[in-house]
Design a protein around this nucleic acid. Sequence first.
DNA 1: TCTGATTTGTTCGTATGTATG
DNA 2: ACATACATACGAACAAATCAG
Lengths: 238, 238
Amino acid sequence: MAKNRFPIWRLIQSELEAEIRSGLIGPGDQLPSESDLAERFAVNRHTVRTALANLAMLGLVRARRGRGVFVDDRPPEYRIDRDSKWSEIERQMNAAPSGRVLAATERPASAVIAGFLDLAEGAPLLLVETVRGAAPALLIYSYHVFDRGRFAGIDEAVRKTGSFTDALAQFGVGRFFRASTWIDCRMPRPREAEALSIPLDAPVLVMMYVDKDAGGRPILYGNAVIPSGSLLVRIDTL
Amino acid sequence: MAKNRFPIWRLIQSELEAEIRSGLIGPGDQLPSESDLAERFAVNRHTVRTALANLAMLGLVRARRGRGVFVDDRPPEYRIDRDSKWSEIERQMNAAPSGRVLAATERPASAVIAGFLDLAEGAPLLLVETVRGAAPALLIYSYHVFDRGRFAGIDEAVRKTGSFTDALAQFGVGRFFRASTWIDCRMPRPREAEALSIPLDAPVLVMMYVDKDAGGRPILYGNAVIPSGSLLVRIDTL
DNA sequence: TCTGATTTGTTCGTATGTATG
DNA sequence: ACATACATACGAACAAATCAG
């Protein structure tokens, strides 16, 4: 007998969540009634209700008594292009730079990261961990990796300004651009979950990227950890 | 008292997984010894071993008796550009078209999808669910949404050819291109987990995209559900 | 305005399995 | 072995809001 580690309401939640996040059921659309869903999934209405309550907590739907359950608006989009920066999001949302430095540590460069930053394997790196928020429900946990030889002390500049763009300007980097981006997802680390106010069993989207200056010289390797569903990463390929 | 739903080895696993996936510890690098890790996390060596065993099962590390634990190669990259297609991956991996149609259903278009496909809200859609694999450990679960008026019966063509590119050719669509892509992540639906051979608590990356023909006319709206860590989505912004 | 049907919200009760001590 | 607590799931009933006629 296979033990049923996963409650039924969780499976129902996955089903509905997938349909909503895919857009098959769009903002403003009405979900089938609780009774209909209970019949469709062959469960009690209570079981459907716990699933719906969770979706409401995630901000995906809103229930209105006497009317039904309706799909909420989609999350804001984060467009990936040469000018992708978190500070752009903050500007777009009319939020001030909010970078809070949680830690700044040193470590040697792995071959992968050395390749990204045009450094020798084992070269000393500066790893800066921050939490930033553009809105109450729009937080990211970031790792920024710098060549310590060139950017020693940049963590202090970020502490003061709350912005990497501003901090980099103090190091003579006037403009820089997104060169490459990799996207993956995983479960959060304990401190990420705590800082982002999400449970340990909610997945996170991870955006890894290399920023370069106008001359093509690598500036930083960054990782942005984003709670699932709070931001929709978008790429236009014209 | 906060209830401790998550075992310690799971937290340790998240920590190590994050470092590996980010590239901070790269392919070929050696992890700290089990004893070192046990000390660092202040747990017994057995606890560390369960975490490491799981990482090995995920294909992230490989333990060698008497030598240590080493990071495995990174997953293959899936580059997003105008020519992004699953058939390109298959060609790259020397795999034959392997599309297996699991279901083909009809449903009315939501406002979001109607916008993607230049249709009226409520227009009839054809939703084709498939599983495709380019390698044993490289499966995707796909949803393809078509204008039923234009592409009625395309599910049969996919059943025969195993490829959407080939099936579309039968409908007079010679060439088409990726126009926009959105990326998100979530927990899998039960049938997705089963078809992809992943547990229900492993997150999936979801790639949503609109393909258009050379004239800019929308062809399809697709969703690719990818097991976390099996593929690295990459975007170059030159 | 009234009526009835539909839908969500709330509160009982019952039963079962699992983890804890 | 036993008691307790908790999460899960089902069933019934009713209250409150909404809408169509």
